[in-house]
């Protein structure tokens, strides 16, 4: 048996994170090449600053400036850096206790080779030239006994209250074995549903298992591209990623022979004239545009048949 179809799925978004006063202060100071910690309930200076004490859970507020030099307290060696990491050449992840801090900060150390770095090694921050108020304003740490670049004068810039954190993750999305014949059918312009062996309901699109019996659907059933509108809404609102200008109709279509409706576009009729029970037929895209997707059907349009009686579809609402 061939493996089910699969395709890349990228999840990417630039999250906008309001920082609140504590993290905001830390990030604002990073922009000025200063590192700021906070004193905990037990007297320890935490870097990065914690908003709430790990022992008492009380809010913390006593900021303490620390150096941008420090000592490696533990490390590992990354020979093949991953996407988004601070360096694209081999580097060390390290917990670094900055001078004046009692806890350690996680960052990268550009040590060249694992033989060059040891626990206890002295490091200093390598500050980025263009700083925005983010942990990445420190490009990485480097092995050195020397001081880091000195702080800049406090600039008249506004304090940092927001940090943008891009997230880009990459997945491979697979269809289920039951979905696969359906998707391959679509590539040939055929509508392949599956029947549950227990309840004999016909699912289109097929599901990995019948949702009421919990067993994989087995028998394939080919359906025509005609059906009935069970219910619908008229979309008047523009939104991100919209394909056609509103107003238009998004309708539940129950294909003849299927036991469950699905949402699709209904065009070729003024929205205000669309009715529950209206008979519709598929309008396919040109064959050369077909792929393993229901988008091969560009939209549905009225077929001109008389409306289906309410009783014929009322149990599908």
């Amino acid at each position: 048996m061939t493996r089910p179809l699969s395709a890349p799925l990228d999840v990417g978004f630039d999250y906008t994170r309001s920082t609140g006063p504590t993290l905001g202060r830390f990030l604002t100071d990073l922009r000025h090449r200063r590192v700021t910690g906070i004193r905990g309930a037990d007297g320890r200076v935490h870097v990065p600053p914690l908003e709430y004490d790990p022992v008492t859970a009380e809010p913390l507020s006593e900021f303490v400036g620390v150096a941008s030099t420090g000592v490696v307290r533990g490390w590992s060696w990354i020979p093949d850096p991953l996407e988004g990491q601070p360096l694209d050449r081999p580097f060390a992840w390290a917990l670094i206790q900055l001078d004046g801090a009692d806890t350690a900060l996680l960052h990268a150390v550009d040590a060249g080779s694992p033989d060059a770095i040891t626990t206890g090694a002295r490091v200093r921050a390598r500050w980025r030239a263009a700083r925005v108020g983010a942990i990445t304003d420190i490009e990485y740490f480097e092995l050195s006994d020397e001081p880091a670049d000195p702080p800049t004068d406090a600039s008249p810039d506004n304090d940092v209250t927001m940090v943008v954190t891009p997230v880009n993750l990459h997945y491979t999305h697979s269809a289920s074995p039951t979905e696969d014949p359906f998707l391959r059918g679509l590539m040939e312009g055929r509508l392949i549903a599956q029947r549950c062996p227990a309840c004999e309901k016909v699912y289109f699109p097929p599901r990995p298992a019948c949702p009421t019996d919990g067993v994989p659907t087995t028998d394939q059933v080919e359906l025509s591209d005609r059906g009935t509108v069970t219910t619908f809404c008229i979309v008047n609102v523009p939104f991100l990623g919209q394909r056609i200008p509103p107003p238009y109709v998004s309708a539940y279509v129950l294909l003849d022979g299927a036991d469950i409706p699905f949402l699709h576009l209904l065009l070729g009729i003024a929205p205000e004239d669309v009715r529950m029970g209206m008979r519709v037929e598929a309008v396919w895209k040109p064959r050369e545009e077909w792929g393993p997707t229901m988008q091969n059907i560009d939209h549905f349009r009225p077929s001109g048949e008389p409306d289906a009686p309410f009783d014929s579809y009322s149990r599908h609402l």
């Binding site: 990030l27 590992s76 996680l106 960052h107 990268a108 942990i135 990445t136 954190t165 993750l169 997945y171």
Partner: peptide
Amino acid sequence: AGQLRRVLAMQLDPYVVTPLWPDSVGLAGI
């Protein structure tokens, strides 16, 4: 389905740790 070492970086502090994309194996090494 994904790259587990990077996916798990999403469990870290989203303000000052995840932006460095520390991977789960790298952290375990420390």
